[in-house]
Computed example of a mutant assay.
Amino acid sequence: MTSERPVALLAFDDAYRRQIFGEEEEAALARLVTPVAIDLKTGAGLPADARIVVTGWPTQRLTEAAIAAMPHLGLVAHAGGSIKSLLPTSGLAGNIAISSCAAQNAIPVAEFTVAAILFANKRVLELARSYGESRGGRDVVLGRFDTLGNYRRTVGLVGASTIGRLVAKLLKPFDLELIVADPYLSEADAAEMGVAKISLDQLFERADCVSLHAPLLPDTRHMVDSRRINAMKPGATLINTARGALVDEAALVAALKRGHIQAVIDTTWPEIPAADSPLWTLPNVLLTPHIAGSGSTELHRHGAAITAAIDAFLAGTPIPGRVFLDQLDRIA
């Protein structure tokens, strides 16, 4: 297969392609490359002259056979956040650039998180339910709570990831104290972010809202355990838009049942809670079906980012969203 423009393989179906590329993004892609839809189940039949593979959330893991079948491959551009589950365990040459749309996916997650923080400190979930139960006026409902509002409240961010940093940036206009726990965050970076770096244990003890933005790694699984949950302030809120397995769900449910804290949970483990999980019905829980990340028109950001990465690759300039192999052991 030959073409005046480089061949870019799209490793997902037409339905996902339409989600990622709107008319404008599709036109920009066509100006740069010849897009060819393929199935990566095997390495057979792949165009040997392909220089670019575009992957997405539906794409299965790249195999060594697929990589070997494309000797001219120079860029794997992922139209999603985490790329780790798609890369082969070996056989990926160092001269193949990898990019992801983690920065683009971070935007709606950060927006969701900021909304959750501001609503949680205002105790919107509880006030709405109390209003419905009491059918009373404002004074009756507000009188049930000693602490209400966002003025001079403390927000703890677990992880100075792309999302964690964006949340901190979006919260700057508010009268909040921001504290962050992240072993890789330097004091200089913390100062630049406008946050205070503290230990994870201190963060759980001090924060009115704890928001999780850490990757799921062997040493972060169940990092939010019973000890840390029980150390939270009475009435504090735990927000999880990261990975469900960061939290010991049994310990969380126990604390929620006794009314110690409230929670905004967008990610669980398993991804859909068991049918009899108390998370479905507890009054101090806002449970959503993993909606914080990009969806609908927000996915067009990913398409625009993919074309920007391809454009930079073809021009020989720094590729936006580039992910390096030595980063994979500590990113989501």
Rank of each mutant, 00 (worst) to 15 (best):
G91N: 09
I107Q: 10
K84Q: 02
I96H: 14
P88T: 10
T89H: 08
A97G: 12
V109I: 09
L87D: 11
K84F: 03
P108D: 03
A110M: 07
S99G: 00
A110F: 02
I107P: 04
I107G: 08
Q104I: 10
G94M: 02
A93D: 14
I98V: 15
I107Y: 02
I83H: 05
S90E: 02
N105I: 02
A79W: 00
C101M: 13
A79S: 05
I96V: 15
A97S: 15
A102R: 15
K84N: 02
C101D: 12
Q104V: 13
L92E: 10
S82I: 03
I98K: 03
I107T: 06
G80E: 06
A110V: 05
S90H: 07
S100H: 08
Q104L: 11
C101H: 07
P88W: 08
L92V: 08
S99F: 09
P88V: 10
I96R: 14
G81F: 00
P108F: 07
G94H: 14
S85R: 15
G91C: 13
A102H: 07
C101P: 02
G81S: 03
N95K: 15
S82N: 11
S90V: 00
G94T: 07
A106R: 04
P108Q: 04
P88H: 06
S99D: 07
S99T: 14
L92R: 06
L86V: 03
A103Y: 01
A102Y: 04
I98M: 14
A106Y: 08
A103D: 13
A79I: 00
I98R: 12
G81M: 04
L86K: 12
N95D: 15
S100C: 12
T89E: 12
N95M: 14
S99P: 07
L92Q: 12
I107E: 11
G91W: 10
I107K: 12
L87R: 06
A97M: 11
L86T: 03
A110E: 08
A102F: 02
G80A: 15
A79M: 01
N105W: 01
K84V: 02
I83F: 06
N105Y: 03
G80K: 04
G94I: 00
K84W: 00
A93I: 10
S82Y: 05
S100Q: 09
L87K: 08
L87E: 09
S99R: 06
G94A: 14
A110G: 06
T89V: 06
A110N: 08
G80Y: 03
C101F: 05
L86I: 04
L86M: 10
G81A: 12
N105L: 09
G91P: 09
A97Y: 09
Q104G: 06
A97F: 11
N105M: 12
S99K: 07
A93E: 13
L86W: 01
A79H: 00
A102C: 08
L86A: 00
C101W: 05
A110K: 03
L87I: 10
A110I: 08
